[in-house]
Design a binder for these strands. Structure first.
Lengths: 212, 212
DNA sequence: ATCCCCAGTGAATGATATTCATTTTCCGAT
DNA sequence: ATCGGAAAATGAATATCATTCACTGGGGAT
């Protein structure tokens, strides 16, 4: 093997224009055809590079997808962290996270498709991503939930982990539905943030236990 | 082309043993390697048939996966419908659905992996499945929610669609976490049904609106 | 001006999905 | 029991990509 191949074949020059062009092209092409049916040659063509060039930047097709998702996710998490600094009420923080999540994907359909479909590609793939990124996102959600419990606005007996899954699951599911919905009937994804959060909030807030 | 090839290349003999053997093999192999890295020849070998035989039963690799998922899903929906007949309280019905969902996947790890990862394969793929199967599942959930609203146990002002997404999303997310979790720390998926449903129920039940 | 260096290239290679000419199995008619 | 032909099944041949690698061109150092 010519190149010892670290995880990403090239680490220098990552800032290069070409690197990002390939990532963008990958998102577009994969969103259109799905990972399996996407030809590396088509991604290369759309990015304006030769087929082989892709392999200077990424070890293989899998890692190309992974890098594209990673890159987008990093941006999302960074934006979320910044936005949360402006807010103090834990309920409002959850609304903010839901809004950013829905807005980030709702404003870029190709990215949303890749996140909701290709990210879940193979278990190994998902596990690796999950470990790096999802954990970070979940930690963010959980820290808000814990904060809310300490402030006595969220039920202190609740499992923070389970509640976080409910919150994330609900938001995530709404996105999946959106990308499958008739493109005609365009509705704004971020407009749904409040309705979802309202249900989840009522579910986790302090107050009369629900009847059994 | 020799065979006019309907959606599934063969419709007669679908009950054949060989058909089911191929489906089972597909689930196992795809759960292990992911769809992209699964070789049709390995599925054929595990099913004890020749490579070409697969194509007598399924048009291509995509439709093989689709058929495997469809088949498992049909069984789930049928079981759910039957079980719900025994229950009348809408809250209890939701618990039943969550339990069956978690039990059905929790007792077959390979199937769970395929459902949580490969099902979401490509948007077109997901859309097609979604249309056939998911709609049925969602209708089931929604009908329970509507029933609960009529019985005044669930908030009548709630959007049934949104609430259904919250419910499904929460359950679905728990399954994803389970397949990614350390295999060592085996816990029973179905044991989580009540915790999740408790949160969702409290979120949708009639009662004091939550503070804002 | 000459020499490195290395990003970039794209034709060659290898892997594997799919096809199809052939073989085997099955079954009703005689 | 035997035959004939249709239905199933086979697996070698083909087609389609992912991936490799021997080569090219340009720019910075000497």
């Amino acid at each position: 093997m010519k190149r010892p191949s670290t995880t990403t074949a090239r680490n220098a020059n990552v800032a290069s224009d070409k690197y990002q062009r390939i990532l963008d092209a990958a998102i577009e092409v994969i969103a259109n055809h799905g990972f399996f049916h996407s030809r590396v040659s088509e991604i290369a063509e759309r990015a304006g590079v030769a087929d082989g060039t892709i392999y200077l930047y990424f070890k293989n097709k899998d890692e190309l997808l992974m890098a594209a998702i990673d890159s987008a996710f990093h941006r999302f998490i960074a934006r979320a962290r910044t936005a949360l600094k402006e807010v103090s009420d834990p309920r409002e923080k959850l609304r903010t996270i839901a809004f950013l999540h829905l807005e980030g994907l709702g404003s870029n359909r190709s990215l949303a498709i890749v996140f909701q479909t290709e990210l879940r590609h193979s278990a190994k793939f998902l596990a690796e991503f999950s470990h790096n990124m999802m954990v970070e996102y979940f930690d963010l959600i959980k820290s808000v939930l814990r904060e809310g419990q300490e402030a006595r606005v969220f039920d202190a007996e609740l499992s923070v982990t389970i509640a976080a899954h409910c919150f994330f699951g609900a938001v995530d599911e709404i996105v999946t539905t959106w990308i499958l919905a008739d493109r005609e009937r365009e509705y704004h994804l971020s407009g749904l943030a409040d309705s979802i959060v309202e249900i989840v909030l009522k579910g986790i807030e302090t107050g009369n236990k629900h009847g059994h």
